[in-house]
Design a protein around this nucleic acid. Structure first.
Lengths: 146, 146
DNA sequence: TGACAACGATTCGCAACACGAACTAATTTG
DNA sequence: CAAATTAGTTCGTGTTGCGAATCGTTGTCA
């Protein structure tokens, strides 16, 4: 197969995989009574509190959009904003106790669903796919590093 | 590495790749003066006219959401609805001449961007990644076939 | 040391987008 | 031929997104 056809296959596959992952977030979110975007936010926050600037970068959102998203989730009692101790401009967003439960459940269900997809792949393939995707992501970061 | 750690790596990688692909659609869409969702729609339509039911399935949207999306793009003169010849309930959505230009440009730019990500991978890896992703997608379709 | 630039986050206006119930018209089924 | 189902729309409601403008705070520089 020519190199161009190989690459087109990857592009198509990546797009379809993206739709699949989005669907997983939508379905798991529905189960946990979260919108897909709320589910993504809570999953990220299971790693610990983080600033708005970092969150907006991770979620590819304008800060104003993130403000609204955090407002809605805060209103539900799932997250809380805490002042940064060193920089009074900054806030950290953290999960509340209830948010930790919801975030853990969401994170576990999403991972379980995505892992189930990979179950059919031989272990050697999985490792290679993961390594290749990580490599692809790293390459992208290098080309877009500020 | 344990099998579970392998699978978690795949889950994380798939999520990050999804964000990357979404970003590509957002950036290419901005360039083409389309919203990300409009860009996705036009890309799908470059394959030819399709019914609303099939489109909503491909885009993971409720039919009512698709009605609005198609309305907005139709209003811009990029698509047109055509009556199905066999089933008077059904409509097919097709690109207009202008829509074909926009759709082709969007499709080519998205593919170019995604292909550029894969350039760093050795050809043998690309082929294996594409094959593995296609396999993963096919397995998913088998488990969810109606 | 003070002026200015930059940063972190919010507010505001606007439009896109999403779901799901209810509906209409058309087709399929028994 | 009536009932069930399908294709797509309307409607109400809420979420989500961008970008300009704004405010308070921090960092930089002459």
């Amino acid at each position: 197969m020519s190199e161009n056809a190989q690459e087109t296959r990857i592009a198509d596959a990546l797009i379809q995989v993206t739709r699949l992952v989005e669907r997983v977030f939508a379905e798991v979110g529905r189960h946990c009574e979260l919108t897909p975007q709320q589910a993504q936010l809570l999953c990220l926050l299971t790693d610990g509190p983080i600033g708005m600037t970092d969150l907006s970068r991770l979620l590819n959102l304008e800060k104003s959009s993130l403000t609204g998203l955090v407002d809605r989730v805060e209103r539900r009692g799932l997250v809380a904003r805490h002042r940064d101790t060193c920089d009074r401009r900054a806030w950290h967003v953290a999960l509340t106790e209830e948010g930790q439960r919801a975030g853990a459940e969401t994170h576990d269900l999403v991972n379980a669903r995505l892992e189930a997809l990979a179950e059919d792949l031989p272990a050697s393939d999985r490792d290679q796919v993961a390594a290749a995707l990580v490599h692809l992501l790293a390459a992208h970061r290098r080309t877009t590093a500020d």
